[in-house]
Amino acid sequence: MIRGRGLERRFGAKRVLRGLDLDVARGAFVVVTGANGSGKTTLLRLVAGLAAPTAGELAVDADRAELGYLGHEPLVYRELTALENLALYARLYRVPESRERIGMLLERFGLWDVRNERSGTYSRGMLQRLALCRALLHDPTLLLLDEPFSGLDAEGAELLDRELLERRGHATFLVATHDPVRLSPLATGAVPL
């Protein structure tokens, strides 16, 4: 699914990744670990196609419509409600029967009651839940999750655990985390940076 050889990414003189080889098979659940600033986010952005490697080769066997990305930021408009944000993304991802799908996700992540409130008024944990809804909206086959548990309370984290377990095997996962213990029951491989 993902194959990288000698990946490097630099920002001017600063080299974040150097000579990284990466292989992720279809259906695998790979955890990316490393200290802050080790390039976890950069690697995920490369795989997502948000940035190009400055050296090396990278082949990702999924087009943008099959890719679900959860970043540091929730990637939603603060002035729009949860419903409006998801409706926009459903349109852009051409999600069929989007109303039902959006309703189901909001229900599952406990945001149904606040669906008509501006997302700018949400707490950090609620934003993370909304971001998860956005990333899962189009049922992606490749999921790139950057610190998916950050900001979530115990209940939210359990919801996410369940979600990951359910999708494991159906989708390919590349998950960056500084807390690999939580994901160790799911993981099929690890990339230490």
């Binding site: 943008r64 930021e73 939603v76 051409r94």
Partner: peptide, 17 residues
């Protein structure tokens, strides 16, 4: 500004649009 703040532009760029 709405897109660059909080990097929402990434979300649009990632979509198959």
């Amino acid at each position: 500004v709405p897109e660059r703040e909080q990097r929402v532009l990434d979300g649009l760029v990632l979509s198959p649009v």
